[in-house]
Design a protein around this nucleic acid. Structure first.
Lengths: 123, 123
DNA sequence: GAATACTATATAGCGCGCTATTTAATTGCA
DNA sequence: TGCAATTAAATAGCGCGCTATATAGTATTC
């Protein structure tokens, strides 16, 4: 999975986890670190360095929230937004590589999500 | 997945990837690095340091093969073998945590294996 | 209003999995 | 035989995901 994305994302010069963060931001434009974390099941220990790399790549900005100075708001830059267009083919290519129908993939995704929930809940 | 195993393997003081290697060795007792790699889809860059950790934990030995000095043969120690008994409950606990029937898990495994094969083959 | 508890990030440190490269042993071919 | 090609491990270096801990800022409680 990671390996498939790696090849496709090489032209964009981002990694697969970075791509996941960008996808979340393309939907919401601006989110706090923990809001991103909730959506991707990642915590600040993972996200902080990743976001710093996206920041130094000029794709996002990180700034302390005015209302709550504990929070760091991550927002897309123009460059970050424009990357979305170039990323269009990625999803398509991965879908093609799976050789699955959209319905089969949806089923599999649902099954894995349920499994994750059960594993997280404990025995 | 990893997180579930981590908790269960803590008493054994090994990680989940280390546990996978031990499972392979419990079946075969002695294998070369690349033979382990084939079974787990891992290469020497990942396995060499992992095996060194298992070696320094006293669970395996690593020695150059006599027939082919390029190969390193990894073999269980007595301590490594005896760990198998203590690991008995791990599989059971994980199975329980999935909340799946054995048949459902088998199906899911097959589906994911086919998906991996397709992804590896390319579009 | 001050001490306390809680929350959001950040940091340190570890193991894993990867790519790219190196080293050493074996194979194969002229 | 000798030299090139191949193979098996090892190494360097990077990003990720985790646990444990620290550092702030905010909320609560008395």
């Amino acid at each position: 999975m990671n390996k498939v994305y790696r090849k496709l994302l090489k032209p964009l010069a981002i990694t697969y986890p970075q791509y996941l963060v960008m996808m979340v931001l393309w939907e919401h434009d601006s989110l706090s670190v923990s809001e991103i974390g909730e959506r991707l099941f990642l915590d600040s220990a993972t996200l902080t360095p990743l976001l710093k790399r996206l920041e130094s790549a000029g794709l996002v900005t990180r700034s302390r929230s005015r209302e709550d100075e504990r929070q760091v708001v991550v927002a897309l830059t123009a460059r970050g937004r424009s990357l979305q267009a170039r990323a269009g083919k990625v999803q398509e290519s991965v879908f093609c590589a799976t050789g699955c129908t959209a319905a089969a993939l949806k089923d599999l995704k649902g099954e894995l999500q349920r499994l994750r929930a059960r594993l997280a809940a404990g025995c």
